[in-house]
Amino acid sequence: MKKTGFSATKRMLAKITPEIEAKFATANRENAELIVDVAKVLIPEISGSSRGQIKNVAVEEGAQLVDFGPKAKVIEGGQAPRPFKNPAMKATHKKRRARNKKAIRDAIKAVS
């Protein structure tokens, strides 16, 4: 009989190989690049010089940090609605979620 639930999931995740971790890192990098690309399109023309400062930076263990530049708070108006960060996140949500689901699905297939 096949066990299901938390213990089975825990055993399955323990089998994750470096190749699978690389797939997750690739998915994270592609998601961050997508956010950066959309944010660069959405940044207001008046502050267009800040477009080049929007970038993603790789940090430890495949994580990505999206940096909207040193003037992001000035451009966005402190606590006011963020005219290019929040819309970029919302516009890319479905694509990012699908990419993450695919990485998880591939990982499960690889360890099953």
Rank of each mutant, 00 (worst) to 15 (best):
L34A: 15
G78T: 08
N28Q: 02
N86P: 00
R97L: 14
N56I: 00
P81Q: 13
G69P: 01
I108R: 05
K102I: 04
L34Y: 10
K2Q: 09
K85P: 00
G78A: 14
I46H: 12
F68L: 09
V111M: 05
V41L: 08
A88F: 10
I35C: 01
R82M: 07
I43D: 02
F6L: 15
S7F: 04
A88I: 09
F84R: 03
P18M: 00
V111D: 03
L34V: 02
I54H: 03
K15E: 12
I16D: 05
N100D: 09
M12G: 09
P83S: 07
K40L: 05
G48M: 07
S7P: 00
I35S: 01
I104R: 02
T92Y: 07
P18Q: 11
H93C: 03
A25T: 03
K109V: 04
I16S: 01
E60C: 01
A107I: 00
H93D: 14
K3M: 03
G62N: 02
P18W: 08
I46F: 05
P81L: 13
K55L: 12
V111I: 09
F68M: 13
L42I: 08
I46C: 02
P83A: 05
R96V: 03
T4W: 09
E19Y: 09
I20E: 05
G69D: 05
A98E: 15
S50V: 09
K109H: 15
L42T: 11
E45Q: 11
K73L: 12
A63F: 10
Q64W: 04
F6M: 13
A22K: 09
S49W: 13
I54F: 06
D106R: 00
K95T: 10
F24P: 00
K55M: 13
R51D: 08
T4S: 09
K90E: 10
E21T: 08
T4P: 00
A63D: 12
K71W: 12
R97M: 14
K71N: 15
T92G: 11
P70A: 13
G52E: 11
L13T: 05
Q79F: 11
N100S: 08
K102P: 05
D106M: 04
F68D: 02
E76V: 04
V59Y: 06
V66L: 06
R11Q: 11
K15I: 05
K109C: 06
N56R: 06
K40I: 02
V36D: 02
D67N: 15
G52D: 08
K102S: 14
R96P: 01
I43P: 00
P70D: 12
A110R: 01
M89R: 07
G69A: 11
V66C: 04
R82N: 15
R96Y: 07
M1T: 12
K109I: 03
D37S: 15
A91Y: 02
